[in-house]
Amino acid sequence: MQLYETEICQYTESIWKNILDLDVKKTEEDYCPSEGENILAGCVHISGEWEGAVALDCPSELAKKVASIMFNLTEDELSSDLIQDALGELTNMTGGNLKSLLPEPCYLSLPAVTMTEYGLKIPGSELTTKVTFKCWGYKFNVSILKKVSAN
């Protein structure tokens, strides 16, 4: 069992259900985006007694569907700002819940959202936990990255 894997599952399922009324389930399948596939990756940093980041990366099509539900708009009505807002909000809620498990005091950053083909690049940190979920046939990852001490 990876660090906080149970809590990631619990929080993710709960957030997606409460905010979007969507059922998401952990899957043992890997989320390996195909070449050329656009991924939207949300990230919040945690600084303080514990240092690292929480990331949520998903296909841009899923981010669009999520934004459509969150803002009650059709996919055609969505701007890219709203899609980024939606993913940022989900990442922020997931990170906020996970932060409460970490040693205090810790600060949660604002979310950053990246459009990428390769996933997030956070130098000086290592992946400690990655959980893959399935929603509407799309897969997405929720990850914890911990800062690696310099020495």
Binding site: D85, A112, L120, K121, P123
Partner: peptide
């Protein structure tokens, strides 16, 4: 925070 990097073609947004 620790830095977040975007390679060429990867735009960063701050909602």
């Amino acid at each position: 925070s620790v830095p977040l990097l975007g390679l060429e073609g990867q735009e960063q947004f701050f909602p």
